[in-house]
Write a protein that binds this DNA or RNA. Structure first.
Length: 705
DNA sequence: GAGCACTGC
């Protein structure tokens, strides 16, 4: 601890913080900023007037850094030094230094907008630009203006965008603290390889044969590439002549590996053995592998992005940013001087790479964040003009408003409703919190809690495991329920109820292809949501997960599906007349399909239900709806009417148009112009077909597939 | 008839 670089800057830091409300600290890896900044300010008396909060983008970081600091100060964790993450608050009235995830601090600021328990707030790892940290940056800017005395904000960032953060905080000082990284030699390729798998293979084997010992970390984009490269490496290593080089062991490393496979990289390798770690960007920040001396950087990353005009997510392989490239290179210099092999030319790095990764706030649906900001009731803040470090597009903000309006969280003037207020209390995306509130009103809260908790965990089914009703399945060794034909939400409910009947037995999860970790998480989320709902609704709620025996199941599902329809009024799709394709109703109409993994059933004629709500639109090989639930036309009718009435300008708080009708028409025709001619044609054909259909009553059609 | 990077309340 004594030789951490940051301690040499203690005087300078204290002096600067003393004189300025906001300070940006540029601290490279190994500078000790995460553990030392809080202790320095603690020593200098900043904990006398309040608690020092340090935010982290990840739970594990909050816990491990707090543990370290408690050790260094020689105090029990949870007393003078503590942490708070979801489901776990290890702080007490004695706590002076508190580590917490950025999400937890946002929740706290909901009940205490002035955050006046804190004398100092340190936003650590701000360069990662997590959605929550970006919102906190905006709130902090406002807070330092309002809380004039006894309040300091420190922001730590990376070299390349420290100046930008400083500008955001009206030119606040920037302090540089060097890190403790060893030099890393950067080697560039002459040109982009045709295949970065082949190219990585070649470079890795070259290193293995020619270079001294030290592990090799290879950055790939996803599971597929990783598996391919791992098997090629294994083949190649085996074919190397005996005795010509040292032994080798090859590990894949990505998020969907079970935890016990992930931690293998932390155990020391056998002697005289070089490790090859083939990883996604999980090894960039989340997991640190010791012993890495060589890094091979493909220059690509898989990134999820949201298109606000279609409401669709896509997962694309994109070029990394300079910040990311440097972060990856830095992984080679943690224990001794290293080398980084970039599989792209210097000119590409210099001229093509963005300085920093596009922040999450510009790549995701903002419905939840906009609702959060609305619920804060900041008198001087207009959401559409909220002061973001990097503002999201107005299209994205308008999309959020539209969605919130359709699920009754804001009224037609864009003001938050009482339903919206209740929704913001729940740690869920808006359509899920809306579903819970509706379910509470209609008497199916217990089931809705289960579905919503299952959906927030998302990956409970083990990868590679087929869902039970898939035809390809050779032998049915699983007794998992099938959603009774109503779709995936009902199946998720039934699965959890099944687990409940087995007394939450972890073995049951393994036997039925459910991720143990995921299912335990679902249970935690469900319990947390229960507590919040109890608090909100004051009445006694019936929230046990057991299936009630008294009422008919089908009737139960009907209520639940209706609640899901209200909650997902922003995510409704209507089936095509003659085939099982759908078109979305809430966004610019898109042709979409039910994801093949869905358990939604067809009727006797092979047709899917006329209307569904979906949890997510994702474009992979084609646009798909993931997690689909059958709903009824009569439930969709009021949603359709609401969509027709929708006036975005009014929602944005802009001047309400004096002549309503033409205004809306203009809006529509503008959208039509943007639609490519082909889909416009498809659109009109669909409309014509629908009109004919309605005129003719119900035709007996066979599925043409 | 597909295949998903990583976080978080």
């Amino acid at each position: 601890m004594a030789n951490l670089p940051i301690l040499q800057f203690e005087e300078k830091i204290v002096e600067t913080v003393e004189k300025n409300p906001v300070v940006v600290i540029i601290g490279e890896t190994g500078s000790g900023k995460s553990t030392q900044l809080s202790q320095i300010l603690h020593r200098r008396g900043y904990t006398k007037s309040g608690v020092i909060a340090v935010t982290q983008p990840r739970r594990v970081a909050a816990v491990s850094v707090a543990r370290r600091v408690a050790q260094e100060l020689d105090v029990p964790l949870g007393e003078d030094v503590g942490y708070a993450i979801r489901f776990e608050d290890r702080t007490s009235s004695k706590t002076r230094i508190k580590y917490l995830t950025d999400g937890v601090l946002l929740r706290e600021s909901l009940s205490n907008p002035m955050l006046d328990d804190y004398s100092v707030i340190i936003l650590d790892e701000a360069h990662e630009r997590s959605l929550n940290t970006d919102i906190l940056l905006g709130l902090m800017k406002r807070l330092v203006r309002i809380r004039t005395s006894n309040f300091k904000v420190l922001i730590t960032s990376a070299t390349l965008d420290g100046e930008k953060v400083s500008e955001f905080f009206s030119g606040c000082p920037v302090l540089n603290v060097p890190g403790k990284l060893y030099p890393v030699e950067i080697l560039y390729s002459k040109e982009r390889p045709v295949s970065y798998i082949e190219s990585s293979l070649k470079v890795a084997i070259d290193i293995h044969v020619r270079e001294p010992e030290g592990d090799i970390l290879i950055f790939m984009t996803g599971q597929d590439d990783i598996e391919k490269l791992v098997s090629k490496l294994e083949e190649k290593v085996q074919s190397l002549a005996e005795g010509s080089c040292m032994d080798a062991i090859i590990y894949p490393l990505h998020g969907s590996l079970p935890p016990e496979m992930q931690v293998r990289v932390f155990s020391p390798p056998p002697p005289n053995c070089r490790r090859f770690i083939v990883a996604t960007n999980i090894a960039e920040t989340s997991l640190t592998v010791d012993g890495v001396v060589y890094v091979i950087d493909s220059g690509y990353v898989k990134q999820r992005q949201y298109n606000p005009s279609s409401g669709m997510y896509s997962l694309d392989v994109v070029q990394i940013s300079k910040v990311q490239a440097n972060q990856r290179a830095g992984r080679a210099g943690r224990t001794r001087p290293g080398k980084c092999y970039r599989l792209y030319p210097l000119a590409i790095y210099r001229d093509d790479f963005l300085d920093a990764t596009i922040p999450e706030i510009q790549r995701t649906s903002l419905a939840g964040s906009v609702l959060y900001l609305k619920s804060l009731d900041l008198p001087d803040i207009d959401i559409l003009k909220f002061d973001f470090l990097d503002a999201p597009s107005s299209e994205s903000l308008e999309d959020a408003l539209k969605q919130l309006y359709l699920i009754d969280a804001i009224d037609e003037d864009g003001a938050i409703t009482s339903v919206g207020r209740t929704m913001s209390e729940l740690p869920l995306e808006p359509s899920l919190s809306r579903t819970l509130i509706e379910a509470n009103d209609s008497g199916c809260l217990s089931q809705a809690l289960t579905v919503v908790a299952m959906l927030s965990a998302e990956t409970t089914l083990l990868p590679g495991r087929s869902k039970p009703n898939e035809k390809k399945r050779k032998h049915d060794d699983s007794n998992l329920p099938d959603g009774s034909g109503f779709g995936d939400h009902i199946q998720l409910l039934q699965i959890f109820e099944c687990w409940d009947r087995y007394n939450y037995d972890l073995e049951w999860c393994k036997e039925n292809g459910m991720q143990v970790r995921g299912m335990v998480f679902v249970k935690d989320v469900r319990r947390q949501l229960c507590q919040i709902m109890q608090k909100i609704s004051r009445d006694r709620l019936e929230v046990g997960a057991h299936r009630r025996k008294s009422s008919s199941r089908e009737e139960d599902y009907r209520k639940l599906r209706k609640a899901l329809c209200v909650g997902n009024a922003n995510q409704v799709a209507e089936r095509m007349l003659r085939h099982n394709g759908f078109r979305t109703l809430t966004f610019k109409p898109q042709l979409v399909q039910v994801h093949p993994s869905s358990v939604l059933s067809t009727d006797n004629e092979g047709m899917l239900p006329n209307y569904v709500v979906y949890h997510e639109l994702i474009s992979t090989t084609r646009p798909f709806m993931r997690n689909v639930c059958a709903v009824e036309m009569s439930w969709v009718a009021p949603i359709k009417r609401k969509i027709e009435k929708l006036n975005v300008r009014k929602l944005s708080g802009g001047p309400a148009s004096s002549v309503k009708e033409p205004e809306e028409k203009t809006e529509l025709s503008r959208n039509d112009e943007e639609t490519p001619a082909v889909s416009e044609d498809v659109e009109s054909r669909i409309e014509a077909a629908r009109a004919r259909f309605l005129a003719r009553k119900r035709p007996a059609m066979k599925s043409g597939r």
